[in-house]
Design a protein around this nucleic acid. Structure first.
Length: 279
RNA sequence: UCCGGUGAGCGCCCA
């Protein structure tokens, strides 16, 4: 069963949900009894594939036959509902799990926080965050969720304050947190604050990744920093990373709108040399 | 120990 669980997980991560389902059936044909981990892996794969309805059905079925859902099962489905901003249904799930006698752990609180922020209910999220604080659940992930909630509301003062608070607590801000804030500052047009954070990433010796660079590319283009956007491509290569097609597409779009057709053509050619195509 | 929570764009789904 353990071997099957691991294999199922692999398939799920590779977005091979159909294959995962077949494997699940095969297990049962061979007389093996899937345990709750097996179900969780399957539910996770189904959720990642975006089929929350089916995940909900499986979760409900587990109540009557098969292994009882664990807190992990609920967390997986909660996360999927939250990602689709279906916060009411997510909260309903929370009541269901209490009725099952399950108690809410740190990851579930984190998921709930994510859901509230994603659903724009930042005030509720702040209350939950304060409650989580008492249990020592506020790790770097929790901080980042709430920071993102504030960013989405354009409240960068609150976001920055949380960032400083996390730092002061000794929770080391990571590239994810910097990316969240950089994105937030770009969205309100505060280019200086965004640039300052980028400098900070370098000072701290953190390794920028493709997601951070993609965020930068979008922010620079949206704020019409065309030179900086072009230089960014070189910086990405210096960091040993490969610019992807969406970065080129953003840059080329921005250059076209700025009326620099010649430069746009230059990057278009560079793209095709690398075997990339416009998105 | 092993299954679950955080960041960009694209695609997918929904509108």
């Amino acid at each position: 069963v353990w071997a099957y669980n691991s294999f199922l997980d692999m398939l799920g991560l590779k977005r091979m949900v159909a294959e995962a389902k077949l494997l699940f059936l095969e297990m049962q044909e061979k007389g093996m009894t899937p345990n709750v981990d097996t179900y969780n892996v399957l539910i996770h794969a189904i959720c990642v594939a975006g089929n929350v309805e089916e995940a909900l059905r499986i979760l409900k079925n587990m109540l009557s036959h098969g292994p009882k859902p664990s807190i992990v099962s609920y967390t997986i489905v909660m996360r999927a509902l939250s990602g689709q901003r279906r916060i009411e249904e997510a909260l309903q799930l929370l009541e269901d799990l209490s009725q099952q006698g399950l108690s809410i752990d740190k990851s579930m609180y984190g998921t709930l926080l994510y859901g509230l922020c994603k659903g724009g209910r930042v005030a509720d999220a702040i209350r939950l965050f304060e409650k989580m604080e008492l249990s020592g659940f506020n790790d770097i992930v929790a901080y980042n969720c709430l920071i993102r909630g504030h960013c989405e509301m354009g409240d960068m003062n609150a976001a920055k304050k949380l960032f400083i608070e996390a730092d002061a607590k000794g929770l080391k801000p990571d590239v994810v947190m910097y990316t969240t804030l950089i994105n937030g500052f770009f969205k309100i047009g505060n280019i200086e604050a965004a640039q300052e954070l980028v400098t900070d990433v370098g000072k701290k010796g953190l390794k920028p990744d493709l997601i951070m660079f993609s965020t930068l590319m979008e922010g620079l283009c949206e704020n019409e920093c065309f030179e900086a956007a072009q230089e960014l491509l070189d910086e990405i290569v210096r960091q040993g990373l490969e610019p992807n097609s969406s970065m080129y597409t953003m840059l080329i779009c921005a250059l076209c709108m700025a009326g620099s057709a010649d430069k746009a053509v230059h990057f278009l050619e560079e793209m095709s040399l690398k075997g990339l195509r416009l998105d």
